[in-house]
Amino acid sequence: MKRIILLVVISVVTFSFSLAGAEEILNGAGASFPYPVYSAWAYDYYKATGAKLNYQSIGSGGGIRQIANRTVDFGASDAPLTPAQLNKDNLLQFPAVMGGVVLVVNMPGVKAGAVRLDSEAVCKVYLGNIKYWDDAKLKTLNPKMKLPHNEITVVHRSDGSGTTAIFTNYLSGACSDWKARVGAGTSVKWPVGIGGKGNEGVSQYVKKAQYSIGYVEFAYAEQNKLAYTLLKNSAGNFVEPSFNAFEDAAATGNFDPKKHFDHWLVNAPGKHAWPIAGATFILLAKDKKDSSVKSVRFFDWAFKNGDAKAKELIYVPLPKSLKDKIRAYWKANGIY
């Protein structure tokens, strides 16, 4: 027995040291929402260049703290930091990829794109002011539909998440009642509804509970074949969630390099813009120039070669105009 233990000790120790320091890996951590697309890019990047990039989803809060503590080469967050926050920790910030949040419903016989909603209706449903599907407000929005007199089961996230931050920012921007009573953040004090853990949890609940409504990332709605709704945007059009609608939002969104791109992509003014979109952000340490340059090299490569992959995974690549702005921002900060 003792001999076995000794053998294990020796082999583990030698194993660990013989292979130590062989190669360099760029480490990134943070938001869980872009995890699939970053890991896909990293896989292709490794095949193309031989450089390894290890991205791990530990949550946006975790990502912000890791880069602030300088334990990773770059951090990632679904919520943009304000210039003040960035200055405090000596960080740079830029968007990397986008996604859209969609509302999904479960009503017998109702297909994707059948229900029309506007921000006021969504707000009232999530505040608990609209309790039944045949509410007058919903009826005027959907004159052709036969809405049943069933109670609406409202589903939201139970864990803190960037998706919730995007969604509550949309509600706060469009609806003063929401802003006053609840506000926006990664997790909020929900007036009504039940909470599911992760996009997965919300998808599960909406699938399971009839007459429910929930909000999830577009990719989850597609993967789980959930019935998304149409939404009325700031331009007054009812739009369907699609790549074009998200891209239009990004193109008309006001990303300002001077403010380190601190911007919520909700209620964008574009004619076909989807009102609940959001970029996910990369955070770099100003004083770790070597790390930052390598990270930038990766994202520059991804901007050039990664659009198709992103779309395949149902993420929205940044429009060219925004990519150019970001490259100029890199150059201005001496990391490109």
Partner: peptide
């Protein structure tokens, strides 16, 4: 493990890194 050994998408036996 989330905040200590982290995770690594690549094969690694190096205990000094993620």
């Amino acid at each position: 493990l989330l905040f200590t050994s982290f995770n690594n998408s690549f094969f690694s036996t190096e205990m000094k890194g993620p």
